[in-house]
Design a protein around this nucleic acid. Structure first.
Lengths: 330, 330
DNA sequence: CGGCCGGCTGTAATCGCTTACAATACGTCA
DNA sequence: TGACGTATTGTAAGCGATTACAGCCGGCCG
């Protein structure tokens, strides 16, 4: 079932069929109707591969995330999708599970698909890959990693600032012994987020201390990280989690150990995913505007005529949201 | 950056390059090395559109879901992804938000992409679309809707049975006044799930009664549906939710109204998503084996040589999982 | 020494579409 | 009536791969 078949049935040339189907050029209403009728009759759907091959553009955006199970990433994907749809673009999403080899494979795949723009929302990036992408020429947005280049825009969240607000808040509530729960992808000692916590604590040296623990970036991972932390015998009065998703896992572990939150231990998240309001107790967290990030990504990737893509850096300043999972030290 | 460029740089023909890149045919180790070097040097990534066009196959599976925000759908998608990856296939996912027009558009898109298989995991289907898909000839799996055809397989969960188990369990716990929380896509009076509840209650006529309420298939939707139900003045002793996701929303509403679960009201979910163990109280629910469903879908869509696709119906019998959100009536 | 065979490469058709350019038709105006 | 501009349609050259088929070359056998 191809253009040719439709053309034959309608008694016109393929060019005309193409024009009708794309609303381009000029076509008599009569012919247009004939063509549409033929297409419908044959149950014809244009081959999009052929279309992008011939047209040289795919009208498709790629989104690569570390863990689509974590609502934070899902929200960003959905925001991009919304923006893309409004502009007549498709979105394809891929997951890396924090695995560097997967990241490489996914990026290859996206380049192979000749996406017209690519958003890479992952925690760590091999510089070689950045180089690859940069030289590929397609507009790229990196989230939270890398530096602007010709065709590369960076969206950064000021995590450091967010963590500082959080630690300051906890300090103000009298907390001095902290726990920090991260996920494995953050084990790298120079990880931005972990560093931010350590630095924030160190800047109040002598007053505060912190111990860290890690698990997978899942509910269960958060639970296990909490369990591991407590199993060491360390007794923090507040546990800072790298994100809300893991915090919810931690909440469960504490609940099952009979530790009351926030009475015995305060718990904080990060991201302010919807779920953070629906868990019990509702999480104190840091708000990251995922919707805005998604829009920004679209704006950068789908550059309007004459707009040059890339070479910008956009920073987002996160805000503290206090709910029920934190309270004064007792 | 195309095959031709690589061929020229390597001093061979495009056919040879193609053979090297696909590990097909026979190529001297020396030439192979030259080609690979040239490809690497040029930063060459094959154009997948051209590839599927020429090859006539896309090695891509499509998955269409109603609401990817609901972990139930996400889990199925991920399971399909896992199975597909193991077989060297890609997966593209699309969301309908329960909108029939979106469903049509997404199916068109998938056909346009010439996916080699399509899984449609949505609640309602226009028969015309089924017809369309059937005649398109691509292997299709419908979840929970439609009937087997030449190239169509059906995976069905015996909801009726699941709901019956649930109602029976609640009845056994002494509950007589039920509430049912659904989502809007189920408002259609002949909806399978709602009917199952009504039937289960009616079969115990005179003893049990039920009132229903609906919201969006989101956390907030569950909360609002719960609020709406209670706002009518109706006081059920147990609330049955159409799925876990909405149940978690309902839990929040009850908590905020000072209604204790399960002391004052029991709450049940459906699906047994991971979250159902992590919310508070942990949900009594019905287990739907998402992983197995995903595998089954892969098995059906990626038929081995000589295997004829479609024309089967697979039924899954769900199981009751009792946790902390339900208890005896008081 | 000629013919044949098998391993390696190259040539060119093909996939289904877009699009620049050519061709045709038709109405208008002098 | 003939020239001409405009609106509509057709012709055919790509887009970047795959792949059937043909060609070439060296070795082996009779």
């Amino acid at each position: 079932m191809n253009l040719n078949a439709v053309a034959r049935l309608a008694g016109v040339s393929t060019a005309t069929v193409s024009r009708v189907l794309n609303n381009s050029g000029t076509v008599t209403p009569r012919t247009r109707a004939r063509v549409l009728k033929a297409a419908a009759e044959l149950n014809y759907y244009p081959n999009l591969h052929a279309r992008s091959l011939a047209g040289g553009k795919s009208r498709t955006l790629g989104v690569i995330v570390s863990n689509i199970e974590n609502p934070f990433f899902l929200d960003i994907y959905q925001a991009v999708e919304t923006g893309a749809e409004a502009r007549g673009y498709e979105v394809v999403v891929a997951n890396t599970d924090y695995r560097p080899d997967q990241l490489t494979a996914r990026i290859r795949l996206m380049i192979g698909r000749r996406v017209s723009g690519l958003a890479v929302i992952v925690s760590e990036m091999d510089p070689a890959l950045i180089e690859d992408l940069s030289s590929s020429g397609i507009p790229v947005v990196f989230y939270d990693v890398g530096a602007p280049r010709r065709n590369i825009t960076n969206v950064k969240v000021n995590y450091r600032r967010g963590i500082e607000k959080m630690v300051e808040y906890l300090h103000g509530m009298g907390h001095r012994k902290l726990g920090f729960l991260g996920h494995h992808a953050m084990l790298a000692p120079l990880n931005e987020r972990m560093r931010a916590v350590l630095d924030a604590v160190e800047s109040r040296a002598g007053q505060m201390e912190v111990q860290t623990s890690a698990g997978a970036d899942t509910l269960e991972g958060g639970r296990q990280a909490a369990r591991a932390l407590l199993a060491t015998g360390y007794r923090p009065t507040a546990i800072v989690c790298v994100n809300d998703f893991m915090a919810i896992g931690a909440l469960r572990e504490l609940r099952e150990q009979g530790i009351r939150v926030p009475r015995d231990i305060s718990v904080t998240g990060f991201d302010n995913i919807n779920l953070s309001e629906f868990c019990f107790p509702a999480l104190t967290t840091i708000h990251i505007p995922r919707e805005r990030i998604g829009q920004t990504i679209c704006d950068c990737l789908i550059a309007r005529e004459g707009d040059s893509p890339g070479n910008r850096e956009i920073t987002i300043d996160p805000e503290l949201v206090v709910r029920d999972s934190t309270g004064p030290r007792r």
